[in-house]
Amino acid sequence: MNGSIRTLFWDIGGVILTNGWDRNQRKRVLSRLGVDMEAYEEAHERANYYWERGLITAKEFFAQTVLTPNPELDLTFEIVWPQVCAESKVLHPECLDMLAELKGQGRYRIATLNNESRELNGYRLDAFKMRSLFDYFICSGSVHEMKPMPGIYRSAVDISGFEARTALFIDDKEENCEAARAVGMNAIRFESPQQLCLALADYDVHVSSLEMV
Rank of each mutant, 00 (worst) to 15 (best):
Y153V: 00
M130D: 06
F128N: 05
P71I: 06
G106M: 13
G104N: 11
S142H: 12
G54H: 04
T57I: 06
R124W: 03
D97K: 03
K147Q: 10
T112G: 06
W51R: 11
A127C: 08
A58S: 14
L120P: 01
L73T: 05
L67D: 04
S160V: 11
T65C: 05
F128T: 09
I138A: 07
A100F: 01
S132M: 08
S132K: 02
A63D: 14
S132R: 09
Q64C: 02
A167L: 13
N115V: 11
R124P: 00
I138G: 04
A164H: 03
Y136K: 10
H44V: 05
V157S: 02
G54E: 06
E78Q: 15
L73F: 15
E116R: 14
S117D: 13
T112Y: 10
E72Q: 15
R154G: 05
N115C: 04
P150H: 14
Q83G: 11
P69D: 11
V84G: 00
Q105C: 13
C95A: 11
W51V: 02
E94W: 10
T57N: 04
Y108N: 07
F162K: 08
L75S: 05
V143F: 09
R118P: 14
E78L: 13
P69L: 15
A156Q: 04
D97H: 09
K103S: 06
R46W: 04
Y136S: 13
R131I: 06
D97Q: 04
A43K: 03
A127T: 04
E72H: 13
Q64N: 13
Y153F: 09
P148W: 02
L120W: 01
W81P: 06
N121C: 05
N70I: 02
Y50P: 10
R154F: 12
Y40E: 06
V157P: 00
E101T: 08
R154T: 03
P148D: 09
G161E: 12
R53A: 01
S142M: 07
G161Y: 11
L120Q: 05
L67R: 08
R118E: 10
S88C: 03
E52S: 01
N121A: 14
Q64K: 13
G104W: 03
Y123M: 12
L125I: 02
Y49E: 13
M98F: 13
D135E: 15
E119Y: 05
Y50I: 03
F162E: 07
S142V: 11
P150L: 14
L75C: 15
N48E: 07
E41P: 03
F162Y: 14
G141N: 01
P82R: 07
Y50D: 15
V66K: 00
D158N: 04
A63L: 10
D97W: 04
Q64L: 08
A156L: 12
R109E: 02
E101P: 09
I56K: 00
Y153N: 03
L102M: 09
P71S: 01
R154L: 12
H92N: 12
H92A: 02
Y123H: 08
G151H: 12
D97I: 02
A86C: 05
E87C: 07
A86D: 13
H144K: 09
K59R: 12
K129A: 05
L99Q: 03
Q64E: 15
T76Y: 02
G122W: 03
F77E: 02
T76H: 14
